[in-house]
């Protein structure tokens, strides 16, 4: 738990018993969680467990069929009609709540026809009505912060994956959101480019940014997360501090998931050790 937060402050993000189906297939089964200001929450779990869908529900890129998601205490996506039945909220209201939570995507999802500077500045212009000069000035500042001050005039497709993702993070930072949602931010990067993105994220965590991160980077999660949530088969199976979840998991499924992960990684290091041992005799 992040320090210095009064107990009675409402959660910045609260997910309450959210269930979602794609047709007959249930992808989220009554998932609940809450995120306090300045907290870093990592969501881990096998592919297809519903992690990304959960994250996408949190700023209503996906509809959900039951349960509720609150951003600063306000229900996103739905309004209660007089009949008691809930109806989809107006796009205007949904958009207004979305402003509080920015998102960073696995595939970056930059707008390729705009320069790096415009990618970061455009939401400020289109959503907040900022004058272009002001938007560009702020965009330049955040791009410098993520180490891309020299790339502002490039088009995104001319950058490496790691640089593109840092533009994605800058774009999220520029709108000064209350929280940033990261959807597997390093999963589509070449291994040697993962580090530069994680480093920027670590820096943000250190500055007190509220972050919800869906990730397969266990070491990173162990290092920066205040809390780790393990999702499996559409259900929240375990939640706790990194120490609790990684070193003393209560649930059998968590244990198995972490064992598989550790095995794959130790196998990798063992192979390296063997190669190293053999090397002199050749």
């Amino acid at each position: 738990m992040a320090a210095g937060i009064s107990r009675d402050e409402p959660a910045l993000l609260r997910v309450a018993n959210v269930s979602k189906w794609f047709g007959a297939h249930q992808v989220l089964n009554s998932v609940s969680l809450s995120v306090q200001r300045s907290e870093v929450v990592c969501i881990i779990g096998p592919s297809g467990s519903g992690k990304s869908t959960l994250l996408r529900c949190m700023n209503f890129l996906e509809e959900y069929q039951s349960g509720e998601i609150f951003i600063r205490g306000k229900l996103i996506g739905y309004a209660n009609a007089r009949s008691g039945q809930r109806v989809r909220d107006s796009e205007r209201n949904i958009d207004a709540l979305r402003r509080d939570v920015a998102m960073v995507f696995q595939q970056f999802n930059l707008w390729p026809h705009m320069s790096v500077l415009d990618n970061v500045a455009q939401p400020l212009v289109l959503v907040y009505g900022k004058p272009k000069a002001e938007a560009h000035a702020r965009a330049r500042r955040v791009l410098e912060k993520v180490g891309l001050g020299d790339k502002i005039d490039e088009y995104p497709l001319r950058l490496s994956g790691g640089q593109q993702q840092r533009v994605g993070i800058a774009r999220a930072l520029a709108v000064e959101p209350a929280a940033i949602l990261f959807d597997e931010p390093t999963s589509s990067l070449d291994p040697e480019l993962v580090g530069e993105v994680l480093q920027v994220m670590k820096q943000l965590a250190g500055e007190g940014m509220t972050m919800v991160i869906v990730t397969h980077e266990m070491h990173f999660a162990a290092e920066v997360a205040d809390r780790v949530i393990f999702l499996d088969q559409s259900t929240k199976v375990e939640e706790g501090t990194p120490r609790e979840v990684f070193f003393n998991p209560k649930n059998e499924r968590t244990r198995r998931f972490l064992e598989t992960w550790a095995e794959r990684n130790s196998l990798f290091t063992r192979n390296h050790a063997e190669t190293a041992q053999r090397a002199p005799s050749v």
């Binding site: 996408r56 700023n59 890129l61 796009e91 205007r92 949904i94 958009d95 207004a96 709540l97 979305r98 402003r99 939570v101 920015a102 998102m103 995507f105 595939q107 999802n109 930059l110 707008w111 390729p112 026809h113 455009q122 939401p123 289109l126 959503v127 774009r171 709108v175 949602l181």
Partner: peptide, 27 residues
Amino acid sequence: VPPGQIDAARSFGIPRWARIRHIIVPQ
């Protein structure tokens, strides 16, 4: 135009018409 780009615009609360005008139509 890849749907991910539209997701990104929606996630910032960029209204529908601005999405069409500034992101979809130019491409």
